[in-house]
Write a protein that binds this DNA or RNA. Structure first.
Lengths: 205, 205, 205, 205
DNA sequence: GGGTAAGCGAGACGGTACGTCCCGTCTTATC
DNA sequence: GATAAGACGGGACGTACCGTCTCGCTTACCC
């Protein structure tokens, strides 16, 4: 989102309802048409909005899809299933469920593909998706420390590096399994994956 | 590639040089224009070939890019650096180096985005990229068994599951680090990642 | 003009200055942008007036331009140069000078083009421009009768027909010369034209 | 027209039928929609042709309409009605009949309006319409000289000036009568007009 | 070594979406 | 109630690619 009538007062204010309608229409269009089939004219029509309204708020397809997809990942929650392993499995399965929805997979891969040539887009993805979802890793570790499953980490810089690594390992593995290898990221897989990850993080060595 | 003068005989045979020129032109265009900027007219012009020639050999942009990108990953080699950890680090760094090239990252993400709505394309990616590069995991494990770093695995089905899991974990983490988080997958990161992965695979537990 | 605060009293009265500013802005925009480039948003901005103000007073571009152009032709004066021939030449040259200004030529042709499909607009042109400028023909004939250059005309209906004919012949020739043939309607041409016209009107026959 | 595959050979040749279909569709659209309502998308659709095909052959609406309208005036013929006066009346009535058709009047005025800011367009009008129809004046004078109604003109430069003047007077009067004054240019008017014109040209003085 | 069928370059073709611009209306707050 | 400001739904613009087609040439294979 980047709306809000600029500074002060003059003129008709922007419709608040339009933003939500546009993002929902974007996801619906991604479901039906996929990334390359998505056109802004179509999104505008679905949202019951003129193309100008859409372009007044988003610079283009890329920015729009980042926002539409980012909202999807905000649905993720860290469940409390009693143990760190079970919590991780829960998040992995939720994440896999979201990626299995066509709007998420094709939208995410599409904007990542475009971001290789667009610095502003890359930063938008990092801010709206990557940094925002690292909250799950932080929350998971905090809970595990409360439970005594993980020791508190003294060095804050090393802790941050570990958070980044875990996030890339978890998100990367699920994305790759679901979208590149195109195999189901089901409960059995989530269990196997979680076992390897947790051992790697906790084993003496 | 899917050329070869169809069944029999008559008529002028297809130019062998054209295939290679087209794939190289595709990669060059991906570097300059990115996935969405790539047009088949432009590729044909760069390759010094008519559009008809290109369409006679590939069904469209997606198929062409899969083939062009697949060739890039064929450059990957399993180095012999004396230990499994060092071998993995070597492959991770090679993989990261390839993904850092714009033609690889944007091409791979582009076709994966499209593959969410195109079963044939998804299978083409699995065959040309995923299954083909699993050779690296297989070779790594074989060498580690020879060195005695890993025990021979009895159950072939479990072995296959492990190969798949390792491949998704390695490739996924590198792809996510390089393209989604958009942070450098450098030597320090490769060391951290490899330590967690190897402990996860070898620790008692 | 068709303003004037409607019937009675209530509320803020319309700004009188705005009408003049808008018509002047319209002519300025015609000079810079021509008929097709003229937009009402731009006129409003030039006049320092909101679009709503403009639409409250004129129905659209056509009506606005008729009024703006009509004011230009009101500048025409019948000079007293001592003879009917000289008077006609004077008016012809004044008329040509006005049509040479881009706001007049492009504005007039533009609204005439539109008037072929808009009866109200056609009548507005006839009232604001055609009938209003026929005063010049009437004044010229009156003065020529005073001078004894033309005999008084008895039949009022025939007189009206002749006024119409002369008006179309003079205005038509100048417009066609200046805008369609796009050749200069200069003094030499005015002299040639006036000679033919006057002979045609006065010769025995 | 400005088509024709450039120099030599390569590539699919342009469809000859398309040109004619497009010009006819342009006239049909002018009839229904008028100058400002005419859109090139609509013309293309009526002609059963893609917009690209249209833009490949004409630079824009202005050029297209000049060509479409010019063809209308090519229908004009100098009738042989036995006397110069009758011949002129015949041409005047034909010309009035063409201008009464909405495609002619609105198209001609529209392009003339645009030509005030476009030198190339102005020249196109002069070449395709003005200079081309002067043939009628030339033919009329030649026939009148044969009949002995007009003396042969010695000075070729003066003759050219006279042709230009007559053309602007005839065409201008008819255009102004029909489109600006918006009164019928009927037989009575044509007789009155022709009488004045012919007396002006032939009277001693 | 001559005939022929497919490959090839060029580029026109019917389509479709783009992102921009203007239209004429509307909704605010201010005067 | 008129105004300035500007968002709104709508629609045409001219451009760019798409994937197909229609040409005239070229080239290797088969008889």
């Amino acid at each position: 989102m980047q709306s809000r009538t600029p500074a002060g007062r003059a003129g008709r204010p922007r419709s608040a309802a339009a933003d939500a309608a546009i993002l929902a229409a974007t996801r619906a269009a991604l479901v039906e048409l996929g990334w390359s089939g998505l056109t802004l004219s179509d999104v505008a029509a679905r949202a019951g909005v003129a193309k100008t309204t859409l372009y007044r708020r988003w610079a283009g397809k890329n920015e729009l899809v980042v926002d539409a997809v980012a909202e999807l990942f905000d649905e993720l929650r860290l469940p409390d299933r009693g143990s760190l392993a079970a919590d991780i499995e829960g998040v992995v399965l939720q994440f896999a469920a979201i990626l299995a929805r066509p709007e998420a997979g094709s939208g995410l891969m599409g904007v990542v593909a475009e971001s290789t040539r667009d610095d502003a887009l890359r930063e938008r993805i990092r801010a709206s998706i990557v940094r925002r979802q690292k909250r799950l890793v932080l929350a998971g570790r905090a809970r595990a420390e409360q439970r005594g499953e993980l020791p508190p980490q003294a060095d804050p810089e090393a802790a941050a590096r570990t958070v980044d690594l875990i996030f890339d390992m978890v998100a990367g593995a699920v994305v790759h399994r679901a979208l590149v290898s195109a195999e189901p990221a089901d409960e059995a897989w989530a269990r196997d994956f979680t076992r390897v990850l947790l051992r790697g993080l906790t084993a003496a060595g």
